[in-house]
Design a protein around this nucleic acid. Sequence first.
DNA 1: TCGATAGGAGTACAGTGTACGCCTCGTGGT
DNA 2: ACCACGAGGCGTACACTGTACTCCTATCGA
Lengths: 238, 238
Amino acid sequence: MTDTLQAGPRPRLNRARVLEAAVALADEIGIESLSMRRLAQELRVVPMALYKHVANKEELLDGMVDVIVGEIDPPAADADWKSGVRSRILSARHTLQRHPWARRAIETRTAMTPRVLDYMDSFIGVFLAGGLSLDLTHHAMHALGGRMWGFTQELFEDPAAPAPAVTDAERGEMLRQAAQRYPNVVAIATSVTHDEGSVVGHGCDDQFEFEFALDLLLDGFERLHVRDWTSRGAKAAR
Amino acid sequence: MTDTLQAGPRPRLNRARVLEAAVALADEIGIESLSMRRLAQELRVVPMALYKHVANKEELLDGMVDVIVGEIDPPAADADWKSGVRSRILSARHTLQRHPWARRAIETRTAMTPRVLDYMDSFIGVFLAGGLSLDLTHHAMHALGGRMWGFTQELFEDPAAPAPAVTDAERGEMLRQAAQRYPNVVAIATSVTHDEGSVVGHGCDDQFEFEFALDLLLDGFERLHVRDWTSRGAKAAR
DNA sequence: TCGATAGGAGTACAGTGTACGCCTCGTGGT
DNA sequence: ACCACGAGGCGTACACTGTACTCCTATCGA
């Protein structure tokens, strides 16, 4: 009876409620004003209560991007890979634009949460289903970089492998599980490492990937340029 | 004589020295550990002394990116625009890689410092000197986005014009001065706004620019894909 | 020689993330 | 029906952040 006197019975906290409230609050007051204290106040709870559901603020932010990545529409069953990729990216962009802070948050976060891996896996799947080679798909993912997210960033870029001390057996088990959930991601990763060394995570030349995307764009500019130039010339000639 | 007992006479502070020290310190301990107090300690000075040369931490960070942008090599007098742009971008990337924190710092900063404008202006100049139209150059700048900086970001994206209260006369004067220092930037900006509305800063469709760059990449993938496919077919046929 | 002044020193305050200990319920085993 | 237990919320405390405000002092032009 006592708590009915309050503005509401305040249902018990849980991780999902914390994360959703954080997302909503960030939408409202901006990510830079989002503090643990402010969030706690919003949930009508003492600040330290949050730490029962979130290890620290870093993990809170990780969880927040996880939530919004989960909001991205699943890939529509498009006719060809190109329009499939295109519509997915634009859908991601649309989702991200609803949360202005999300772009910056994703950039600073490097955690590979399950939903992020899901997203990437289905993304890669569209390419592979379209018949593109593992290699080309790999480069394409790099070139798209953050455009996958509806904006731009350099993905995979920090090879500071989290690699938390695990035995080889555990590592093998994790890999098998990952291969089940994220078959495409694993396919790309392993195909890359086969070429070069044996260390997972390396064997992917950052500089090459950068120049690959750069030259794709430059070639595109050039094509548009000469087309423009010739059409102008044709117009002048007739 | 008293100060000769110290590790050094400690030359007087000035803005440049503060900025340089900040850059060096960020290189050493990381941007997230760089605090005003830590920086002051490094300069053997009381924290508040810094505020005589920098309005606040925000401005300190602005100054830091200004410093590193200034480190980028000037554009080499290349034969064609394409290799000119290419080498400039790779040079920028090289510079940025020497300061791991710079990438993230530039992303969060939106201030258009003189050196940034200088950089962009000379960049645009390479395109225009190569004969590209104002329009294509404009789109190209967008498409390259942060790749101009040796990484990736969405530039121009926040049209929240700083527009600090100025009279029309002042505004006109500023524009004339800007046109002298940054002729190419102004050329692009004005050519865009001519098309659509009269408000400076708008008239540049974000969505269009995004899809422009996206389609450039997708077309590139497709070309590589069919080339791969046909060569594979040819090999199988012979 | 003198006084204006730029620049450094000192103190103080609000706000941040979070470590640690306590207390209070709802719940499951006996 | 009891009771212990543990999840989850509370309170306090600490180190650290940016920076506002006041005072002091060394420097330099007249």
